[in-house]
Amino acid sequence: MSDAYTPSPRADKIADWLEVAAIREDRGLGAAAQRELAVAAGVREIDLDLGRNTMVRRAAVLGSAYPFRTGSGIAAAPDVADFPWASMLLMSAESPMRLVIDLPRSAAMFEQITACALVHLYGGGTRSVRFGWPSDIGRPREFPDAVRWLAADMGVAIGSSYRPPYAKDGGVDVVAWRPFPDGRSGFPVTLVQCTLERDYAHKAGDVDVRVWAGWLRLDVDPTTALAVPEVVPAGEAWNALAARTVVLDRIRLASLIREETRMGYPLAGVRSWTASTVDAMRSR
């Protein structure tokens, strides 16, 4: 078995379907129960095996960050709402709750998940901030003021380029950086675009590094990243994105979030939303 997690689009879709079923049923799903659900949903036995195997691979990659048991049966963790994986699953394009959730609110919470994950992007000492608007952390509304606020938080000077007041976030929803103890300039920075869009490939180019170089005076060009709540499959879809930006999909984001962060205050609102969404799905 390869160390790389390289799911196919079909494997991903069936694995997500099994995860949603395990959450919705709120009980362990043995082989017979899985087959019964598969027949009702028109899922073939061969695809059922593919989905189960993909869940096993996800569990191997994520360990305690994966909220499903994949042994003799499939079951969601009793505290499944506490896991960012479940939050992102319910926000994803194929989620049965997609048509009933508040998408702007969900998008803001996905940005919060991304910001919490990126605190660990560059190891100890990494900082991250949700730059998207509307803000719940005190970011000024007007874009020129927001850039000045961000520069002060990062400890860098603002650039001389014109900052349009009508801009909301300049394509950047989360910023992560890792200052060094010497306090000097020239440290790694990542500018992240987050999206819940079903077709997200075009979002890979939303962050223009050249424009941001005129807004923030950075000695080193920043890295860009695209964060999505999906698991991006291997092959053409992955290669097209990875050639243009760093891909932060559900697997990578969940792997970055430590358990103490997951249970802590930064994601309390996300946990509450996920719990209420799970309850709503189970009552449908």
Rank of each mutant, 00 (worst) to 15 (best):
W85C: 01
S72G: 15
S160G: 05
D136H: 06
G269Q: 07
S255N: 13
Y122I: 04
M1F: 10
M263I: 14
A32M: 02
A268L: 10
T223H: 07
L253D: 01
F131M: 12
D102K: 07
M154R: 06
I158F: 00
V129E: 04
D49S: 08
R35E: 08
V231L: 15
S185T: 11
A76G: 10
D82A: 12
N53S: 10
D49K: 12
I74A: 05
D249Q: 07
A117Y: 01
R217W: 12
A240I: 04
A32Y: 08
H202G: 01
E142A: 06
G125H: 13
V156M: 10
V246R: 15
R57S: 08
P165V: 12
V209Q: 11
N239Q: 14
V56R: 15
S161R: 12
R198W: 07
V246Q: 15
R252S: 11
E142D: 09
W17Y: 02
G214A: 06
P165Y: 12
M55W: 01
T245N: 12
T245W: 06
A40L: 11
L90K: 03
Y166M: 09
D219S: 14
D173Q: 10
R271G: 00
A176M: 07
P134R: 06
A146E: 05
R27H: 03
V156G: 07
A204R: 08
F83V: 00
R98F: 01
I46M: 10
E197D: 14
R252M: 05
G186Y: 09
V220P: 03
P104M: 03
P222Y: 05
D79W: 04
S64N: 13
D208C: 04
W149Q: 04
G138H: 00
T261K: 04
G171Y: 09
R57P: 01
A41F: 10
W238N: 00
A280W: 12
G51D: 07
